[in-house]
Design a protein around this nucleic acid. Structure first.
Length: 432
DNA sequence: AAATCGGGGAT
DNA sequence: ATCCCAGATTT
């Protein structure tokens, strides 16, 4: 049995297996390259079962590249809410705009042109070209690296970029004549359903007979992969600032910056507790003294940043949120805005901003008069740039990361219940 | 080459 | 708890 025999065996058997047992997935019911493109971007680092409902909603709303190109960005982000890696959504729309303007709305049957689209890297370009156009291009993802590492017993570290390129060269050489679409999908399907990371189902594998990794008894050791560093911890304090008077039932939120983590998503105002600051020592505590001090720090820092006269009311909940590289330990405090006598002024060219009447006795600081202007405006009721009041009816338009989505939805639900109970008691009391 | 960028399901 | 998922982009 030569190496060439092992390769042609693999290609032949895998193709037969895929055609006999492929799953019925939404993006497999069409060869529209736009649909393939959307599915592949959603599937980046994301499981099939997670993607399906997002894909269905997205395609219903944006059935063509032109429809996506013409949509408001916020609507695209909202449909991506909860899926993660939000730059994918913005890059996809940027790519759709390229397709609309440069190619009349049709994804071109051109490898270089597709590879130049925003958010389309080596894998996605290969996937679009092979799946939609049946071009013999490699589409090497984590599944493919695992399957081929095992079948050919390759000990290269798949975390290294050079290994992906090596496996791409191997993958191209395996594509059967005229069957790139089914073969590439079969490779990934095998990795997803049979050649799984932990306990591979070798006994049902169509290519087990020639799998070098299994024949060497190494199917569980492969592929070799250096493990990722654990996410670094960050201590954060968030404010659930609830409206009063005409703002009753509303909550103050803000939009994140254009770049970086959770770019352009909405969130609750919050601060990071500086590493090594005195409050970090108290972070885990749960008694009144701890909460008073943490809430005071939160109010002072937010007031320094925004000028808003934040008055903490009490601890609400703790929330954990783990990203790939950061672990947020968040404590959430309920608060109000209260500018009654919160600001006083001294000196000729410098202003003393304080919040004594708001109960934040150590929140004062000096600043230049010009810098004081926006703070005074905030005290008067203006909001800083990017901030706005919302009610539950606004949740359908604004995209929040899951962490804040959970906190807000719990609050709206609780408010709804409280209102219902008020009505009930009012009715009972008045009528009785 | 290493870091950044979400979130969840499986084990 | 740990891994990793139909990865791309920036540093």
């Amino acid at each position: 049995m030569t190496a060439e025999d092992a390769k042609s065996f693999f290609s032949r058997e895998l193709l037969l297996w895929y055609r006999a047992s492929k799953r019925d997935l939404p993006w497999r019911r069409s060869r529209d390259p736009y649909r393939i493109w959307v599915s592949e971007v959603m599937l980046q680092q994301t499981r099939v079962e997670t993607v399906i409902p997002y894909y269905e909603r997205f395609m219903e709303r944006f059935p063509t590249a032109v429809a996506l190109a013409e949509a408001p960005e916020e609507e695209v982000l909202k449909l991506w809410e909860g899926l993660g890696y939000y730059s994918r959504a913005r890059n996809l729309q940027a790519g759709a705009r390229e397709v609309a303007e440069l190619y009349g709305g049709a994804v071109p049957d051109d490898k270089e042109a597709v590879a130049r689209l925003k958010g389309v890297g080596p894998y996605t370009a290969g996937a679009i070209m092979s799946i939609a156009f049946n071009r013999p291009e490699p589409a090497v993802d984590g599944n493919v690296m695992r399957v081929l590492s095992r079948y050919f017993c390759l000990e290269d570290d798949i975390a290294k970029p050079s290994t992906r390129k090596k496996i791409e060269r191997l993958a191209v050489s395996l594509i059967p004549e005229g069957a790139a679409s089914d073969f590439n999908q079969g490779l990934m399907e095998l990795g997803a359903l049979v050649c799984t990371p932990k306990s591979p189902g070798c006994l049902t594998c169509p290519v087990m007979a020639q799998c070098a990794g299994r024949l060497a008894g190494k199917e569980r050791e492969l592929p070799v992969k250096t493990k990722a560093k654990p996410p670094r911890p960050e201590l954060r304090l968030a404010a659930l600032i609830v409206g009063t008077g005409p703002r009753a039932g509303q909550v103050l939120v803000r939009r994140r910056p254009d770049r970086g983590l959770l770019a352009r998503m909405w969130e609750l105002p919050h601060i990071e507790l500086a590493k090594g600051s005195s409050e970090t020592a108290l972070f885990g505590g749960n008694d009144d003294a701890v909460h008073r001090q943490l809430a005071r720090r939160l109010a002072a820092e937010l007031m320094r940043e925004t000028g808003l006269p934040v008055r903490p009311l009490g601890w609400r909940e703790d929330a954990e949120h783990v990203f790939s590289h950061i672990h947020w330990h968040m404590r959430v405090y309920t608060a109000e805005l209260d500018s009654s006598g919160a600001f006083r002024f001294e000196g000729d060219d410098r202003t003393w901003i304080a919040a004594e009447a708001a109960g934040v006795y150590d929140a004062g600081f000096f600043c230049e008069d010009e810098q004081a202007a926006p703070l005074l405006a905030a005290a008067a009721g203006d909001l800083p740039p990017g901030y706005r009041w919302i009610g539950p009816e606004d949740m359908g338009e604004l995209a929040f990361p899951n962490l804040f989505l959970r906190i807000l939805n719990a609050y709206w639900q609780q408010e709804g219940n409280a209102d219902a109970m008020d009505d009930e008691m009012t009715n009972g009391g008045m009528i009785g």
